[in-house]
Amino acid sequence: MLRFAAGLSLLLLALLSESVLAAAGWRFAAALAVLIAFAYVFDFWELAVFDLLAVFALNWEPAIGGSIIAFAALPLAAYVVRRLIPAEPLFAAPAGIVAGFLLFYAVSAPAYAAGHSLRIFADIVIGLMVGELAVLCMA
């Protein structure tokens, strides 16, 4: 229960940092990185709660758009990969984050991704740092 509370705090911190930086005009997917990292640490139902909580906070319109569906599905897909290919979270999570971010951009905004490779590279680097921090905090 304590671990779950710590995970919840970390996710809320990621959502808060996203909001603070978005108000300054800088957006990055910290919550996605945390959720993919959590896929290598938490059980399915714990991950599902975190995942839906993030979707609840980030879904910004009455209809559920493609990018929100991709956002919700990627951590769960990472969990499935973890069950199929068990590995040390500290090493598996970064691979999951890189693959997850690339898939997220490819599914949500392929045209944008093609023209903003540097921006996406920066997003992945920040995602890796945030994700590794999340794994270390939960270890």
Binding site: V49, L52, F56, A57, L58, N59, W60, P62
Partner: peptide
């Protein structure tokens, strides 16, 4: 949460507004 996302998304907007 699934119910809230589908039927009461406005609470999510409020949560986000509170985080902003």
């Amino acid at each position: 949460l699934a119910f809230a996302i589908v039927f009461e998304p406005a609470y999510g907007w409020r949560l986000r507004a509170a985080l902003e």
